[in-house]
């Protein structure tokens, strides 16, 4: 591999800025997981169907297995590691815990990021709106119901709380 085949990029991830030297073909998922050690984002299919690897780029959900790291150059990325503040779970994480909206946890980061995006745009979604928003994420364990209940519960928690509720760091 020649040096000119590498590109220097700058990613802001969960509020911190990183300089990376990557091949143009390097997936954003691999840059996050392997280069930055943010292994919370999981790869389930690597062809853009399952949604496990969903992260937010400038507040919009993307499949990090379908996006190159170079495409995120200069942009703000938020991963599941950006949700909790210190030891305190984000209200969405708290609601997923309360309703047990997970079992093996592998798809969960993708669901959390998708649900986070939904609540940013629609703080009080109906069940139909939640189902629609989550329809691109596959979970093989839960049968989804407790995930839906968790998102409903989180939306109420967020709506019921004051503006001091942490909204995550990246978006």
């Amino acid at each position: 591999m020649q040096d000119e085949d590498f590109v220097t990029i700058r990613l802001t991830v969960n509020g911190g800025t990183h300089r990376l030297v990557v091949e143009p073909r390097r997936l954003l998922a691999d840059a996050l997981r392997e280069d930055l050690g943010l292994t919370g984002t999981n790869l389930g299919c690597e062809h853009g169907v399952c949604g496990s690897c969903t992260v937010l780029v400038d507040g919009q959900s993307v499949r990090s297995c379908l996006m190159f790291a170079v495409q995120a150059n200069g942009h703000e990325v938020m991963t599941v590691e950006g949700l909790a503040r210190g030891g305190e779970l984000h209200p969405l994480q708290q609601a997923f815990w309360e309703k047990q909206g997970l079992q093996c946890g592998f798809c969960t980061p993708g669901f959390l990021m998708t649900a986070y995006e939904l609540l940013q745009h629609n703080p009080n979604p109906s069940e139909e709106e939640i189902r629609s928003a989550l329809s691109g994420n596959i979970c093989r364990c839960t049968g989804y119901q407790q995930i839906i209940e968790a998102v409903q519960s989180a939306s109420q928690a967020v709506a019921g709380a004051s503006a001091t509720v942490p909204s995550g760091t990246g978006a």
């Binding site: 997981r33 392997e34 050690g37 943010l38 292994t39 919370g40 984002t41 999981n42 790869l43 991963t79 599941v80 590691e81 949700l83 909790a84 779970l89 994480q93 997923f96 815990w97 309360e98 047990q100 997970l102 093996c104 946890g105 592998f106 969960t108 980061p109 959390l112």
Partner: peptide, 21 residues
Amino acid sequence: IKRREDPDLLTGRAEYTGDVK
């Protein structure tokens, strides 16, 4: 009661085989 397993899974801290480096 809430599951003991969940906080690590929800925050991305649980280590799956693919995370081993």
